[in-house]
Simulated assay, not measured.
Amino acid sequence: MNDKNPEVLRIERTDGVDWVTLNRPDRLNALDDRLVAALTDYARGLHDADAPRVVVLRGAGRAFCAGLDLDGMRSGDALTADALLRQQTAISGLILALRRAPQPIVGLIHGAACGGGFALALASDIRIAATGARMNAAFIRLGLSGCDVGVSYLLPRLVGASVASELLFTGDFIAADRALATGLVSRIVEEADLVAAAEPFIAAMLAASPIGLRMTKECLRASIDAPSLESAIAMEDRTQVLCALGGNLAEGIAAFREKRPARY
């Protein structure tokens, strides 16, 4: 199929923030090979020295992401096990790359976020939804398991086992108001206000020390899976020592006392 715009992923950097836009609006930003490859390459590059401090992920047009582009996918009957595994691990590798990124990722969710699009939303650290957003784990509706591309790991950690089981067993949609009630998103706003709603989060994160922000994401990700409180505290202790080195703590205290923005 031909996209109206061959640039399937748009990236705009402004003041340390990358605004990353899925750009296949005529296909509701469905994930084809090109978009998966472009987004994966981008996510893996987030460890580079010139990487942004914050990433905002959004979709062009009427939806965030409608999931896998089924029109560009061959039937499983026509593929070997090796080919199916390559197809599967391409998108699961994308989710891993996003979760491993050192930057906080803010997902702006509007319209549909289905299947792989739902996984992209879950891979974000902060999710802000438009009032008309609808999300679902569509996989089970296609004859597959409801557990795919990291959703079975991420979803119950956000909404608990019961709600996650409901959504994975049925493939039912969760609307914005219930997503807010279950903790799946941080807030809901009108679609036109999504960027404005993200700006206070972005400003607060940019005001933190670069290493403090990065280590917070790393520590939080590890603590969610920590086997004990002691393990989480041990990681926190080491994180705070690393962040205090190089004058960050002294500057933070000085800025607090002098009632000015910190200069890290």
Rank of each mutant, 00 (worst) to 15 (best):
G246C: 01
M205F: 08
A97L: 13
V151Q: 10
A51Q: 02
S209E: 13
Q240M: 14
L194G: 05
I174A: 07
L35P: 03
R13H: 06
F169H: 12
L194S: 07
C65G: 12
A113D: 04
D71T: 12
G107S: 11
R53L: 12
E12G: 05
S162T: 15
G143N: 01
A97Q: 07
C65S: 15
R62W: 13
G212H: 05
A255C: 02
G111Q: 04
E199W: 11
A30Y: 03
E191P: 08
N5R: 05
L245K: 14
P210T: 03
I105H: 10
N248I: 08
V151F: 09
E199H: 09
L46C: 06
S124A: 08
L142W: 04
T131S: 10
D33H: 01
A49P: 06
A112K: 08
I11S: 03
S165D: 13
L70C: 07
D48V: 06
L68E: 11
T170P: 05
E7D: 12
A198E: 00
E218G: 10
I174P: 10
M215C: 07
A130C: 06
A66Q: 14
D18T: 01
S152I: 10
T89N: 15
G252S: 05
P210S: 03
D26V: 14
N29C: 09
G93I: 11
Y153P: 01
P6H: 08
K217W: 08
S152L: 07
L167I: 09
V17G: 09
G146T: 05
L249H: 07
D18W: 00
L22H: 01
R10K: 11
R127D: 11
F118Q: 04
V163R: 01
E190Y: 11
D125H: 10
S228G: 01
A66V: 08
A250R: 07
L144Y: 10
R62N: 15
A90Q: 14
R214P: 03
L108K: 00
A78M: 12
V195G: 05
S92C: 09
G247I: 12
K4W: 13
D77Y: 05
P102V: 14
A207V: 02
M73V: 15
N29Q: 14
E236I: 15
S124N: 00
G116W: 07
L46N: 07
I188H: 03
G150M: 00
R178G: 06
E190R: 15
A130Y: 01
K4V: 12
I11H: 00
S228A: 09
A30V: 07
K259A: 15
Y264F: 15
A60W: 03
L31N: 05
A175I: 09
G61V: 04
A78L: 14
A196Q: 06
S165H: 11
R187F: 07
L120Y: 01
S231L: 02
L184M: 10
L142C: 11
T21V: 15
A90I: 04
T21S: 13
R257C: 13
A192M: 13
L84A: 11
A113G: 12
C219N: 14
A90L: 09
R34Y: 05
A262G: 12
A30L: 03
A234G: 06
L144V: 08
T182Q: 09
R100I: 06
A133P: 09
R141Q: 15
L57Y: 02
L122E: 06
R221Q: 11
A63R: 07
S152H: 13
G150E: 02
G171E: 07
